[in-house]
Design a protein around this nucleic acid. Structure first.
Length: 193
DNA sequence: TCAGTGATTAGG
DNA sequence: CTAATCACTGAG
């Protein structure tokens, strides 16, 4: 989708300039979307709207622009690779739940669990429109530990919507996982607009 | 380039 | 209990 071009999503025409139409409400993604393999879900999340209902009642919609896939069963870079711990517990549930963890003493990371039960996978949300960076994203949206385990399918305060926007998705290596070594650190499992 | 900052984890 | 690690960010 080019900057400034118009497209019709849910019947409402609006300009796409990497910002969402606050009046437009797309289709909420259901369980089926999330229980697929993480390598299918991750690129499909690009261009979808992350919707958050803030404590004051206002609702924000943010186009997802950058994500990374973590595939526990075969991926040394995935936190669940070594097995189930209290932190990674939620990744063993079926897709649609949130995996939140704290890192570097300052930042909460927002991940969406994917796949079937007992197949630990998750998608790290690295960026949304105008908020580039996983730590900055959670900081500015107020996402913290209280969102751990939240279900995107049933939650009243956070979910994902499809408004028909289908961007061209690029991909490349994931960031910050040198420690995982080859072949994992070179897997092209980072997806972005 | 490099320090800050604290939950989580593995290991004794 | 202890120490190492870390899906990052911002300043210099």
């Amino acid at each position: 989708m080019q900057k400034g071009k118009k497209h019709s999503g849910n019947g409402i025409k609006w300009k796409t300039k990497f910002h969402t139409n606050p009046m437009a409400s797309g289709t909420k993604l259901s369980r089926d979307f999330f229980i697929r393999d993480v390598l299918d879900v991750a690129p499909d999340l690009i261009g979808k709207n992350l919707v958050i209902k803030f404590p004051d009642g206002t609702v924000g919609r943010y186009i997802v622009t950058e994500v990374e896939a973590y595939r526990g069963s075969e991926d040394k870079a995935c936190h669940a690779f070594k097995g189930r711990t209290s932190r990674t517990e939620i990744m063993f549930h079926e897709g649609g739940r949130l995996y939140i963890y704290f890192i570097y003493g300052m930042y909460w990371m927002l991940n969406i669990v994917t796949g079937k039960e007992n197949d630990p996978q998750a998608v790290l949300i690295r960026g949304v429109e105008n908020i580039d960076g996983p730590g900055k994203l959670t900081r500015s949206l107020g996402i913290d530990r209280s969102y751990y385990g939240e279900d995107l399918v049933t939650s009243e305060r956070i979910w994902i919507e499809n408004d028909g926007f289908t961007p061209i998705v690029k991909n490349g290596q994931r960031i910050g996982i040198e420690y995982a070594g080859e072949p994992w650190k070179s897997k092209p499992w980072r997806y972005y607009i």
